[in-house]
């Protein structure tokens, strides 16, 4: 999967948020606040990635067990799918 162009990453006081543009504005009706893991994964999704690959990258960046990393990736990418922020 890979991220779409209709979400712009912005910084408010050091907090990362995704701001939708175009029709995504109406679909989402708000913004997405990213924590450190979310921001890292969003950056990785600039190119096509598989879940396993994202989990490995996460383990390389943060001190986290592989099983936990996989769960985090699944939860985060599921949320991104729901709001149409990634395509397969």
């Amino acid at each position: 999967m890979q991220r779409v162009d209709e979400f712009i990453l912005q910084d408010v006081g050091g907090e990362a948020i995704l701001v939708p543009i175009g029709q995504k504005v109406v679909d989402l009706n708000g913004l997405i606040a990213l924590n450190a893991t979310g921001l890292f994964l969003w950056e990785q999704l600039a190119q096509p990635r598989e879940v396993g690959e994202l989990a490995d990258l996460l383990c390389g960046e943060f001190e986290v067990e592989p099983a936990v990393a996989r769960n985090d990736v699944l939860a985060f990418t599921q949320r991104l799918r729901e709001i149409g922020a990634v395509i397969e």
């Binding site: 408010v12 006081g13 050091g14 907090e15 948020i17 708000g30 913004l31 606040a33």
Partner: peptide, 19 residues
């Protein structure tokens, strides 16, 4: 969502960011 907006406002103010 209101909570997120309040948090962003405080974070911006702490840094003097004209957000």
């Amino acid at each position: 969502y209101r909570g997120v907006l309040d948090r962003l406002a405080r974070a911006a103010q702490a840094k003097g960011q004209p957000y």
